[in-house]
Amino acid sequence: MPPRRRSNVRNHVRALREGHEGMTQQHLADALGVSRQTVIAIEQGKFCPSLESALRIARLFEEPVEQVFELEAD
């Protein structure tokens, strides 16, 4: 059985959020309907959000989803 790999999905949520003046982790959490700790985990790459949340984040920042999330090379 091959060893379990960490996710290859990287995100730019933190950079995008900090680019939006005044947007706190709590604001983003409220917009997504998750806890602030979940937003922290997403920004730190400890948790990969669901497709629905990923699309919501992209819509919130008015960016294509592939600008927010990207697949790292294997």
């Binding site: 998750v34 806890s35 700790q37 979940t38 985990a41 948790f47 959000p49 669901s50 949340s53």
Partner: peptide
């Protein structure tokens, strides 16, 4: 209030 909050997708995972 966070102590009794509904679980989100990370909590469920």
């Amino acid at each position: 209030d966070a102590a009794g909050a509904e679980p989100d997708e990370r909590d469920r995972a």
